[in-house]
């Protein structure tokens, strides 16, 4: 695919969004029968499915921690999730993402409540269009809540970045590929605490501040959608009206 001459024309992006707009976001809690908790998220063309198992007995046992539960995360892209088939199995990118996703979720969990236990989070990217790790975190937080695991807060993720010199919320694939910067971020929304922050590209200090402003705005909307999804599953419609 050729790079279009401009990624932003008259203040509008390739898909018609303004710089501070999210793609359409849909979240559903509790979509899998066997898992203890699950969630499905679509953000634009991204389709992400997450299952949570646990807290459960840790296998293999030598990985047990005597004082806390161990959170294990696996971020995995389906071979058919990208334009050219991705070789199945973990690669260096997915190993790094699994690590930062785990570190993004750990701050909301009370892991000391379940010594020797394991909590497994499986993030499957079924269709990818930039922002999969943050979409995975958004889904994982809902799935953890759906599993009934005590949490201090949810974790909401979004990416911000820069294309054609403009700071943008929620990059799509073309903006990620041809833009100048990409900054995925995850936040515990109630107290605005950042649990994941990565960036590559180039940001002046001023653009960085703008990007953070935009990210916190986006996080609010993601958080609302997460709460809506949990309410849809757990609050009966009759109670919702009151």
């Amino acid at each position: 695919m050729e790079r279009p001459e401009r990624l932003i024309v008259d203040g509008r992006r390739l898909d018609g969004r303004r710089p501070d707009e999210l793609r359409p976001l849909q979240i559903k809690a509790g979509v899998l029968k066997r898992a203890d908790g699950s969630a499905y998220v679509e953000l634009g063309k991204n389709k992400v499915l997450v299952a949570v198992y646990g807290p459960k007995e840790m296998h293999p046992r030598h990985l047990q921690q005597s004082d806390v539960a161990v959170l294990r995360c696996r971020y995995n892209m389906a071979p058919f999730s990208v334009e050219e088939r991705k070789r199945p199995g973990p690669d260096r990118r997915s190993i790094e993402i699994s690590k930062v996703v785990r570190e993004a979720l750990e701050p909301v969990l009370f892991l000391h409540l379940y010594p020797r236990a394991a909590i497994d989070v499986f993030i499957e990217i079924l269709q990818a269009d930039a922002g999969t790790r943050t979409t995975g975190i958004t889904a994982a937080a809902v799935a953890l809540a759906d599993a009934g695991i005590p949490m201090r807060d949810l974790v909401a993720g979004i990416s911000v970045g820069k294309a054609d010199g403009t700071v943008l919320l929620d990059l799509m694939k073309e903006e990620d590929q041809w833009g100048e910067a990409d900054m995925p971020i995850a936040v515990m929304p109630r107290r605005k605490l950042v649990t994941l922050l990565q960036m590559d590209g180039n940001f002046t200090p001023d653009e960085f501040r703008q990007a953070l402003d935009l990210a916190f705005k986006g996080i609010e909307r993601v958080y609302e959608a997460q709460k809506r999804a949990l309410r849809e599953k757990y609050v009966p419609a009759s109670e919702e009206e009151r």
């Binding site: 930062v100 570190e103 900054m183």
Partner: peptide, 11 residues
């Protein structure tokens, strides 16, 4: 800024 990475289990 050309790269950033947060690590660790805190916020």
């Amino acid at each position: 800024i050309c790269a950033m990475q947060k690590g660790g289990s805190g916020f």
